[in-house]
């Protein structure tokens, strides 16, 4: 009971911070914060696949590209309302995720990592190849929006998807995800179909990435193949690992890490942002191999036990 209350208090505080933050920061900072929300959605999705189902993916940038291009093409070529494109992007990415996920269930470990790595590289190349449809290297421009507008849209979407993720993971499906992660064989013997479960995890996680891709393109007001390169997929995986796999709490930290680190690194030294980023990634993973969520588990759980024992 007490734990529930504490959880609710933390959640309420988080919501209050997100709602009140725009009053305190500039429009430009709000644009960056919208970027955090974008990464948040994508990393929550990746975490469902990698953290909860145990399937590594180095290719989630590709699903972001699919979502992003859905939004860009629908608004630019067909005059759709921006909001209406987000659910469509989600659905299309879901289908793409299922198509990639079904064959990928045959692979594991290093092979899965490299196959998804391939997906991350193939999608931007295809975007360049079919340029009459996607605009090729010159990309597609969409209407520009203020930082505040993007902040509201992105964080609202993030909240919706966080609730979705929570609902999925606490139910039957979430349990079968974890069962497959912990032991394929045990999962089968309790009546779970691992192929179906892994494919679903892939599809759901791709759907999250698709929605994030929509937000990504909205923020940039621009869809361009280079933006969806390998680096994006790598940043998502870094975010998931820094946040902590198998936990939704840490994802915020992971999202802030990948979105803000380049900005901060630029501030520390004009010459060496890449060096600082590389060092930061290595240091964080070295000191916190289980990510920020692992730190929480290690520090907060003993602390709350101590408080309980004392009272």
């Amino acid at each position: 009971m007490r734990q529930r209350l504490a959880l609710a208090a933390v959640l309420a505080a988080a919501v209050a911070v997100v709602v009140l933050l725009p009053l305190a920061i500039s429009d430009y900072r709000q644009l960056q914060a919208a970027g955090v929300a974008t990464f948040f959605v994508a990393i929550v999705g990746l975490n469902i696949l990698t953290g909860y189902t145990g399937q590594i993916s180095l290719g989630h940038g590709a699903f972001m590209a699919i979502g992003g291009y859905t939004t860009a093409i629908l608004t630019h070529d067909h005059g759709w309302n921006l909001f209406a494109t987000i659910p469509v992007a989600t659905v299309i990415a879901f289908v793409a995720g299922a198509l990639v996920g079904l064959p990928a269930t045959r692979l594991s470990g290093a092979y899965l990592a490299l196959a998804t790595f391939a997906v991350a590289l193939v999608v931007p190349a295809l975007v360049r190849k079919f340029d009459h449809f996607t605009g090729g290297n010159s990309g597609i421009l969409i209407p520009f929006h203020s930082g505040h507008w993007l902040y509201v849209v992105s964080w609202t979407t993030a909240a919706i998807f966080l609730v979705l993720a929570w609902l999925i993971l606490r139910g039957r499906l979430g349990r079968s995800f974890r069962a497959v992660r912990d032991s394929d064989v045990a999962a089968v013997s309790s009546g779970i179909n691992p192929t179906l479960t892994k494919t679903l995890a892939f599809a759901i996680s791709a759907a999250f990435a698709g929605a994030a891709g929509s937000l990504f393109v909205l923020s940039a007001a621009y869809a361009q193949p280079d933006e969806f390169g390998l680096l994006l997929s790598i940043r998502l995986l870094i975010g998931a690992a820094v946040g902590g796999l198998g936990s939704l709490w840490g994802v915020v930290v992971g999202a802030v890490f990948v979105q803000m680190l380049p900005v901060w690194a630029q501030g520390i030294s004009k010459q060496a942002p890449a060096v600082i980023q590389g060092l930061a990634v290595i240091l964080v993973m070295f000191l916190l191999p289980t990510g920020f969520a692992g730190l929480l588990r290690r520090v907060v759980a003993p602390l709350s036990n101590r408080i309980r024992n004392a009272s």
Binding site: L237, V281, I282
Partner: peptide, 10 residues
């Protein structure tokens, strides 16, 4: 894996 990716960036 993430550490080697960090090394790549570095």
């Amino acid at each position: 894996v993430i550490v080697t990716i960090g090394m790549l960036i570095l």
